[in-house]
Amino acid sequence: MARRTLAGMALAVEAEQLVKHYSGRGGAVEAVRGVDLTVEAGEVFGFLGPNGAGKSTTVRMLTTLMSITSGSARVAGIDVAADPDGARRKIGVALQEAGLDARQTGRELVILQARLFGSSRTQAAGRAQELLELVDLVEAADRRIKGYSGGMKRRLDLASALVHEPEVLFLDEPTTGLDPASRLTVWEELRRINGRGTTIFLTTQYLEEADQLCDRLAIIDDGLIVREGTPADLKTELRERRGLATEPTLDEVFLDVTGRTRERTAGEVQEVQG
């Protein structure tokens, strides 16, 4: 049973003081240092941060792929550490690398995924057809995946994450490496999926993407959430605090929050703390 906010909204994702430490070659790494998060059911929630900030680690903990050092996380009301299989039944996952088996055809892959979520052979075939239509891959469905373009692979990955009609869909940088046309196609798919009631938890490095898609977002830096709110609220807060004449962009919010300058973000030598 999903828990609710004070306003009575059901919670799709809750994390309390989520921590992940692990041993790297250079010693102990504190990848996530106490993340608190709540995502309401039906939201598109953006999770932003610079490279190495802890985005993917947080997502991997929420999706049962990584153990939690301390703290707790619930997805669709289920504790991911106490009942990982229960949580897996409620979530769909599409990670940074499109997790596909290039030797299978698109249809075989989706059918296999549906069977792993308990569908019979016939049900799985029907569901695969539905999803391949949803992501516009029917024509390519019986070709091996190794011949697919990057955009087709992303869409197929999305389809395979949806076989069991998950309550929460986790997407880790779903449009990284895609050309602008493919990116727009993925955005359309995500809006359509969200329109059917699926909560979307999205990490991205593209701030325009977050601005276009997300109802609310959080910015993580150095393993901690440093800002959270709607894109409009975050921009307004920066405009008022800095006394800006015009509404700032989400890029400017991001740079302000993470204490980075454009030069540093772009990889220049000069580094100025904000």
């Binding site: 792929l65 897996r88 940074q96 792993l116």
Partner: peptide, 16 residues
């Protein structure tokens, strides 16, 4: 190959 390509994580994220 499954591990490097991310498919192994896809399997691990399923209730299998």
């Amino acid at each position: 190959e499954d591990i490097e390509g991310g498919y192994f994580d896809k399997l691990r994220a399923a209730p299998v």
